[in-house]
Each structure stands twice: as structure tokens, then as C-alpha cells.
Design a protein around this nucleic acid. Structure first.
Length: 290
RNA sequence: GCAGGGAUAGUGAAGCGGUCAAACACGGGUGACUGUAAAUCAUCUGGCUCAGCCUUCGGGGGUUCGAAUCCCUCUCCCUGCA
């Protein structure tokens, strides 16, 4: 198993900057594990690396999805595994950074997803109520033991898979180092506030306007909170300060979910706030020498 | 100045004499999570020595066994007539 470095953390924690720096120093390439940066055109609000950064370090899994077509964890896993292989074959170090827990875990724990399901069936099931979906599952004689019967999506998944369950998660990928970045609450608030301001200064509102006109206001990535709030703003529904406030609020909410997600992963090496680069380099060096 | 309407928990908003610490939504806390994951779902969300008690429904004063709900009055906001 080739070595893999993974960097996780809350949104705006500085993981991208750390990854970039490490890639430069250690001859690495970056795999973004971000469910929104995959979409073409959604650049400013998803905090994609700049052109200058991309010229310095190779980035993968950014701009790989069309905003009108959607994306999925399965696609992510497949592309990520391929990217790791090709990076390694070039003699470089793969560094996966991102905040989308499910995507990261799919690689870390080698999730084996069930076969694809038809969009028609999903559409049909989505239109039903929870009790109707449950009824359908019962009619099909599916074993619902252990399924969260109050969560419609879970029941729908069960039906789509015709009762099949995903295989149990595998052990953590070998030869993998997971670094975690954690910030104090007040620091995170400040970082988020600064980042939102910077995005606005960089023309975020114009980007949203352009994307809304091109892909419609209801396309998948437009549902990302920062975009949703600014879509309301450019359409004159809310003021700029309200849009910014919502953006910040959404970032904080996301950060909380990310914390919850990563908390259960006991394999993460949480870095101290000081000398994050030095600590990382040391840990990675150890990884590569074993 | 006269005639109406309104002030409810972090926000929006129900309630309109008892079953109201007060629906619901959002916001917030905690957690679940293998093809939408910034999603979806669960749970908690006035205070406390927590099967009970205490303090809340703009301020003050009444009526009543009992009021967020009725009356008087004060303050502030909106609407119609001047």
C-alpha cells in the first residue's frame, strides 16, 4: 500500500494552506476531498486554490463535475483512488485534504458501495411520504433491522439496494497518516469572518450572479450555504450584511458537523496550534521511513 | 390631536380566562451516518437542589378561586382621519 497523507479539519481551519505548503516541501500532489470544489465554476465560495497555487502544486478532484449533473461519494472514491495511484506512479506523495467526512472515509476505510440505482426509482420514492416508503419496504419483505426507520433517505436506500446492506467498514488503510487541524472557537469565528470578507472582496457576488444565470438558481452546488445566501442577495431578497451573516452562520454549522464527524475517527493525529508545518513534516518523514 | 392595530422566550410567530414554561419555524447544543453528506435523521434548547419548585408573555395597577389571555393606565411601534 503506497503512503498517503490525509489532512482533515473544520472549514476555514487552514488545512488547505498547510497541505499546499507540505506539497511544496515534500514533493507532493494534492487531492481535494471537498464535495463542492468538485463543481466547475464554483470557485470563490468554495475556496478553491488560486491559479498561482495550482501552478506550484498539482491539484486533483477540483472542477471534475458539471453543476447540472451532480456528484457522489462513489464517484469521489473512484477518482480519488485513481489519483493516488497516478501520483504515486509519478514518484510523488499524495496528500488528501478536505472537510467532507464521508468522502474521506470512503478512501480511508475502503468503502464498497452497492451497485448504482436508477434515477427513476429514486425520483419515485422521493415523492412518497415516509410511511409510504416504509409500506413499500414492508411489501418487498425487506429486513429493516438496524435501519433508521425515521429517516426516509435511509429507507429509500434500502429499497434501492433491494435489501442489500453495505459491507462493514474495513480497517483503516495501511501506510496512512491522518493529520487533524483544530482551532479555538474564537479563532475559528475570526477566520471565518475574514474569509467571508475576502471572498466578497474577490467578487463572490458577481460569481454567484453569473453562475445563477448560467446554471439556474436551483442547481446542486447553488445549495451550498454561502451560495444560497448570496443568491438571495444578488436577487435583491436580502441585504449584503444579512447574506454575509448567513454565510458565516452556515460555515459555523458546517464546522460543528465536521467536528462531530472527525471525533469518531480515533486515528487522527491532532496537531498543536504551534508549528503545524514542522510537526507535520516530522510525522510524514516517520511515515515514509517505515 | 382623534380613531384603530400591535408589543410573547435568541429571532420570527401561535395562543386570546384554567390542561401555558407557553404550539410551530429558524437559530443554538449533543449525536447518528457506506451512492444527494454544507445532505438526511434523532434528541435537547427559561432557571433550579429537576416525577417538584421558582421566574417569564412591553412597564405599573386592577378584576377573578385562577390572566400571556379581561379592565385601567404608562411607554414604544404601525395604520386611517385630521
Amino acid at each position: 500500500m503506497p503512503p498517503l497523507v490525509v489532512i482533515v479539519g473544520e472549514t476555514a481551519s487552514g488545512k488547505s494552506a498547510l497541505a499546499h505548503e507540505l506539497a511544496k516541501r515534500l514533493n507532493g500532489e494534492i487531492i481535494s476531498a471537498d464535495s463542492w470544489a468538485v463543481y466547475k465554476g464554483f470557485d470563490i465560495g468554495t475556496a478553491k486554490p488560486s491559479a498561482a497555487e495550482r501552478a506550484e502544486v498539482a491539484y486533483h478532484l477540483i472542477d471534475v463535475a458539471d453543476p447540472l449533473e451532480g456528484f457522489s461519494a462513489v464517484l469521489f472514491k473512484r477518482l480519488a483512488v485513481n489519483a493516488i495511484q497516478s501520483i504515486v506512479s509519478r514518484g510523488k506523495l499524495p496528500i488528501m485534504v478536505g472537510g467532507t467526512g464521508l468522502y474521506i472515509d470512503s478512501v480511508l476505510f475502503d468503502y464498497s458501495f452497492l451497485p448504482a440505482t436508477s434515477p427513476e426509482l429514486r425520483q419515485e420514492l422521493n415523492a412518497l411520504s415516509l410511511s409510504e416508503v416504509l409500506q413499500r419496504a414492508r411489501e418487498l419483505g425487506l429486513d429493516m433491522d438496524g435501519i433508521d426507520l425515521r429517516n426516509k433517505r435511509r429507507v429509500i436506500r434500502l429499497i434501492e439496494n433491494n435489501g442489500a446492506r453495505p459491507t462493514r467498514r474495513h480497517a483503516l488503510r495501511e501506510n496512512t497518516l491522518i493529520l487533524g487541524l483544530r482551532r479555538k472557537q474564537e479563532d475559528l469565528h475570526e477566520r471565518i469572518e475574514r474569509r467571508v470578507d475576502a471572498m466578497v472582496a474577490a467578487g463572490f457576488a458577481d460569481e454567484v450572479q453569473r453562475l445563477g444565470e448560467r446554471y439556474g438558481w436551483d442547481c446542486e452546488p447553488m445549495k451550498a450555504p454561502g451560495y444560497r445566501a448570496f443568491a438571495d442577495y444578488v436577487q435583491g431578497k436580502v441585504t449584503l450584511s444579512v447574506a454575509k451573516e448567513r454565510f458565516r452562520q452556515n460555515d459555523l454549522k458546517l464546522a460543528k458537523k465536521q467536528r462531530t464527524w472527525f471525533k469518531r475517527n480515533s486515528g487522527i493525529h491532532w496537531l498543536n496550534n504551534r508549528d503545524e508545518i514542522a510537526q507535520s513534516v516530522e510525522l510524514i518523514t516517520t511515515l515514509l521511513n517505515t
